[in-house]
Design a binder for these strands. Structure first.
Length: 497
RNA sequence: GGCCCCAUCGUCUAGAGGCCUAGGACACCGGCUUUUCACGCCGGCAACACGGGUUCGAAUCCCGUUGGGGUCACCA
């Protein structure tokens, strides 16, 4: 079978910058790396690329760790778990970069430069005017240490640039195919910034080599940069790893996924009540398909099915509706234990919700879940049943609901509530079953439809027309609160017609 | 703008020259179910960007056009 890949164990890495919570696009990159590591019996490494001191956000590494763990994408080597190539923060590996830069300087593969950003901008502007690609003008004579000293004294920025070889470079990409970039498109890029930190290109290449990374799976935005990395590897005597550049995930308009149209961080989806298995399944299908009609998989199934040659080359759009559908199914298919665990996790990341503040016992949480199997996200439980646990005077009445359910027909709904008060006062015991049974019997003797009875109650206790089953709702609410809310609406009569 | 990548329903995709009158899923529309909202079930609408080739035959191969994306940083 073709799915029984002969993939050799690969060493892959996920190397985010610590700027905040994990973005779903990054999660997708992490997932594919993780999948192939698991499938091949290789290793998945988590490295933090924090060489941009200005952009680093304190605590972001912790958030990334939390998000990755929530997804179930565990790493074999990296921050927090350690490994043979520790440390896994680039800011702690400066000696490695310094050694590499020194070697490049000594062998004539790199040189110092002192241009200010204004000068650089001016040169680019000129190139722009002449409509040609800007390429940094390599000096005929490379500055020596004395020049560096002089530049420093003059307060000029001192950077190190790599001598880009004058040859076309082909990337043998496992997704995009062979991509050749002409020598004329590449110039002497910076490998050490004025603040002494290595640039992404240098640190990334050095670390991948030292950590024994054999396969690099990353977003297509890096494809055009890869020739630089290949040249760097050649100059440093490193082997070039295999490359696989994935097409990107965009928003529904084909633009970059932005916070403006909804959650983009894994943590935000967690707070919105998505299950990691649903998110992962959905994300996996953005640019990958095992072929055929199947599209629902567990993580374990994905490991078995995954292969790079099934990756698409075209960008995909993040369709939130489809994700919601996946989540709906994941909730419906989850075992009671799994669902309870997921709900508890949701409560832990939504501590301010009424439902979390109610500190429900396990039996009640189970009951709530069992009776609301039609929710699409765990957060729906809050919007559906949150009012039960809110304070009585926090209930806001929906004017349209009041008008339609209570006032219509000369206040028939209010009249119904008046009658119901007496019924509820004598109802024993106050349980879901007894309440349902009593209401059912009441409807029969009064010869009215269920809707005529249940809807007024809903509006009275919730303010709107939506709630879980009426028996469960009132049982959870308790007799006292039920009656209090009914009496309150009878006195207030919130909307005048 | 230069360079690079891409192009099947609105969206994710199946499709590796005849199996395609193009399949599945989501969304949408209609119906059923129903104490509310949903869920669910059934049915329907809907695509090979365009133009040239190659071939007995093209969604599948080639070229061009158009469109989209990426990249040209002391960000990763």
């Amino acid at each position: 079978m073709s799915t029984m890949s002969t993939e050799q164990p690969v060493r892959v890495r996920f190397a985010p910058s610590p700027t905040g919570h994990l973005h779903v696009g990054s999660a997708r990159t992490a997932l594919f790396n993780w999948l192939i590591a698991r499938k091949s019996g290789g290793a998945f490494i988590l490295r933090i690329e924090d060489t941009d001191t200005a952009r680093n956000v304190a605590g972001a590494d912790r958030k990334i760790v939390e998000d990755l763990r929530w997804l179930g994408l565990h790493w074999d080597e990296g921050i927090e778990v350690g490994g043979p190539h520790a440390p896994y923060y680039q800011s702690q590996r400066m000696d490695l970069y310094e050694a590499a830069i020194a070697r490049l300087l000594e062998t004539g593969h790199a040189y110092y430069a002192f241009d200010t950003s204004d000068e650089l901008d001016a040169m680019r502007a000129v190139a722009q005017e002449r409509k040609c690609t800007f390429r940094y003008p390599r000096p005929e004579r490379f500055p020596d240490e004395a020049d560096v000293e002089r530049a420093r004294q003059q307060g000029l920025p001192v950077v190190v640039r790599f001598v880009m070889p004058e040859r076309d470079i082909t990337v043998n990409d496992e997704i995009m195919g062979d991509v050749t970039v002409a020598a004329t498109e590449l110039d002497d890029f910076i490998i050490r910034k004025a603040d002494g930190m290595p640039t992404y290109h240098l640190a990334n290449v050095v670390d991948d080599a030292h950590m024994g990374v054999t396969l690099v799976i990353r977003g297509q935005e890096f494809l055009a940069q890869t020739p630089r990395h290949i040249a760097l590897q050649a100059a440093l005597g490193y082997a070039t790893p295999r490359y696989a550049h994935m097409a990107l995930t965009m928003d529904m308009k084909g633009r970059k996924l932005s916070k403006r149209d909804g959650a983009v961080e894994v943590f935000a989806f967690r707070q919105e009540g998505y299950l990691p298995e649903a998110l992962l399944n959905f994300i996996a299908l953005l640019g990958w398909s095992p072929g055929g009609d199947r599209e629902r998989f567990t993580l374990d199934e994905m490991i078995g099915l995954f292969s790079l040659d099934r990756m698409n080359r075209m960008n995909s759009k993040f369709d939130r509706d489809k994700l919601l559908a996946f989540n709906t199914d994941a909730i419906r298919e989850a075992s009671p234990e799994r669902l309870l665990a997921a709900f508890d996790d949701w409560l832990s990341v939504n501590p301010d919700s009424p439902i979390a503040k109610a500190n429900l016992d396990t039996a009640t949480r189970r009951m709530l879940l069992a009776a609301n199997t039609s929710v699409r996200t765990l957060a729906d439980l809050e919007s559906r049943a949150g009012f039960i646990f809110a304070a009585d005077d926090a209930i806001a009445y929906d004017p349209a609901a009041v008008k339609k359910v209570l006032e219509k027909g000369d206040g028939a709904g209010y009249a119904m509530l008046e009658t119901l008060v007496a019924v509820f006062e004598g109802l024993e015991p106050w349980s879901e079953e007894a309440i349902d049974e009593t209401i059912r019997a009441f409807c029969e003797t009064q010869a009215v439809g269920m809707g005529k009875v249940a809807q007024p109650i809903r509006v009275a206790v919730s303010g709107g027309t939506v709630s879980p089953g009426i028996g469960q709702t009132l049982a959870l609410l308790g007799r006292e609160k039920t009656l209090r809310r009914i009496r309150r609406i009878l006195t207030e009569r919130p909307v005048q017609s």
